[in-house]
């Protein structure tokens, strides 16, 4: 007897469709977007003869075509692990400082599709920043938060960015970053890192903070780690290599630490422990 299972529900470019059992991804392409030349099934490129199963997610892309706003979310996240985007697009993340760490973290989280980023920094883009920070020659002289906001909107206009061009102090941190469910510490100076963490933790003791310490120089990337150093404090870095005369800050290792931080944020949003596989 043939029951309801001879049909299957498939999401194509984030819209629900019903197809007969064993329909191939190529047949779906022919019916919904015949000019698509990139087929993605459950986050992974697929060849057209692949038969689909109930619940599969299919993304059909025409290379070179700029999608409409409604389709963009689905297409930007086509290579995500399914289910991730729904969780993180409702999230608000605060990033304090958008230099080498913060600019790279903001870009990673924007590509991941977080809903709302609050970025705060008093600084201006200078030529000496370009060895490691995610800015461009034509942005020299602009406040970093505004330059970064422009860059982020070119990647993913669906991410809401609140850009605060100001110096964070104990008196304004609660107001500026109060909506952040996870705080990213991305300052340069050790004293400022400590001030931010103490202030935020005093007001919001239950919210996680992801901090960076020890990413100068060109020592092994493998010494940069994510550690839980306090109840709600995760530290990314080697913990000891300071920026100092003779030990500069450079794009590779700063980038490693920044992406440790971004990954820790993503894991926290998904309810995972940033430092281990255990939930």
């Amino acid at each position: 007897m043939r029951g309801s299972w001879c049909f299957m529900q498939i999401k194509v470019n984030e819209k629900n469709h019903t197809f007969e059992e064993n329909t191939s991804v190529g047949a779906v392409r022919d019916r919904i977007k015949a000019d698509a030349d990139l087929l993605i099934v459950n986050g992974f490129p697929a060849s057209e003869e692949i038969p689909l199963q109930n619940g599969d997610r299919v993304i059909l892309i025409r290379r070179g075509e700029i999608p409409g706003a409604d389709e963009l979310d689905a297409l930007l996240t086509a290579r995500h692990t399914p289910g991730v985007h729904e969780v993180i697009k409702g999230s608000t993340i605060g990033i304090a400082g958008v230099g080498g760490l913060g600019s790279a973290i903001a870009i990673a989280l924007t590509r991941t599709g977080v809903g709302h980023l609050i970025i705060a920094d008093f600084d201006i883009v200078e030529p000496s920043n370009l060895n490691r920070q995610q800015f461009f020659l034509d942005q020299i002289g602009l406040p970093k938060v505004y330059a970064l906001r422009d860059t982020l909107s070119r990647i993913n206009p669906n991410v809401r960015v609140t850009a605060c061009h100001l110096r964070l102090t104990p008196t304004n941190i609660t107001e500026v970053l109060g909506h952040a469910q996870v705080l990213v510490e991305a300052f340069d100076l050790a004293e400022q890192k400590v001030m931010l963490i103490e202030t935020f933790a005093a007001r919001f003791p239950d919210r996680p903070i992801v901090t960076g310490s020890g990413m100068a120089g060109y020592g092994p990337a493998n010494t940069v780690q994510t550690q839980q150093v306090a109840n709600n404090l995760y530290l990314c870095g080697d913990g000891s290599t300071a920026a100092a005369p003779g030990t500069g800050l450079m794009a590779p290792r700063v980038g490693v630490a920044a992406h440790h931080q971004a990954n820790a944020v993503l894991r926290l949003l998904l309810g995972q422990n940033p430092t281990s596989e255990k939930e």
């Binding site: 080498g100 340069d188 890192k193 100068a216 306090a230 100092a244």
Partner: peptide, 9 residues
Amino acid sequence: EVIHFVGGG
């Protein structure tokens, strides 16, 4: 717990 911080970012 005392967590020591170094500069750079």
